[in-house]
């Protein structure tokens, strides 16, 4: 993930709205890895994930002029487009027919020791340190970040108190921060 130039949110948005080659370079260089990471986490099959990534960029490119920063962060907006595209695909008949890939639920949050190999750096490019994230934390982050669960839904899903979810998400973020340079 290369982020050569650091733009503020406002600079980035106005830059992207120009829709020129510079805008595309900035958009792709800043977000492709994060978005591809999200998509791959939901749809591990590389070719499909790449097709979805393409579609996601097309959607972003078309919709960028309507992006309203009062509706949330630019990344949040892109994250939702990527996540929804991947989740939509995972629910499609085509996906179920192909059945080549693990069930979305498994890939997203039923993480356990046996399956941890499917989340290693070879498959999805996750850094070594991220792999070391405690399972408790990772399951939660997967649910909330990749599957788009609210914290409340995650609490219900995992049958743990909401307060615990909040504490763990926070702890996970702090843990993950250590992986930032």
């Amino acid at each position: 993930m290369e982020r050569k130039i650091k733009y503020t949110e406002e600079e980035l948005v106005s830059l992207l709205k120009n829709k020129d080659a510079i805008a595309y370079n900035v958009l792709y260089d800043n977000y492709s890895a994060s978005l591809y990471g999200i998509i791959s986490r939901i749809i591990p099959a590389e070719e499909i994930a790449q097709d979805i990534l393409q579609d996601v960029f097309v959607k972003i490119w078309k919709a960028i002029e309507h992006y309203d920063k009062s509706k949330g962060r630019l990344f949040t907006w892109m994250l939702n487009i990527a996540r929804n595209s991947a989740i939509d695909y995972s629910r499609s008949k085509q996906f179920k027919l192909e059945n080549k890939i693990q069930d979305i639920d498994n890939s997203v949050y039923e993480v356990n020791k046996q399956k941890s190999s499917s989340f290693n750096t070879d498959l999805i490019g996750v850094k070594e340190e991220v792999i070391k994230l405690k399972d408790d934390y990772r399951i939660l982050i997967d649910l909330i970040y990749f599957k788009g669960f609210t914290q409340e839904e995650a609490a219900k899903e995992l049958n743990i108190p909401l307060g615990t979810v909040k504490t763990r998400v926070r702890a996970a973020i702090i843990e993950l921060r250590k992986t930032l340079k």
């Binding site: 890895a33 990534l53 490119w61 490019g125 921060r177």
Partner: peptide, 30 residues
């Protein structure tokens, strides 16, 4: 900003290089 950067960094995966050009071909770039 830090939380966003953390999540963006988390599970990020660099797509194949050729994809950048391929996607550009599908976009209406000025």
């Amino acid at each position: 900003e830090l939380t966003e950067a953390t999540l963006m960094n988390f599970a990020s995966k660099t797509p194949p290089v050729r994809l950048k050009q391929k996607i550009a071909g599908r976009l209406d770039i000025n």
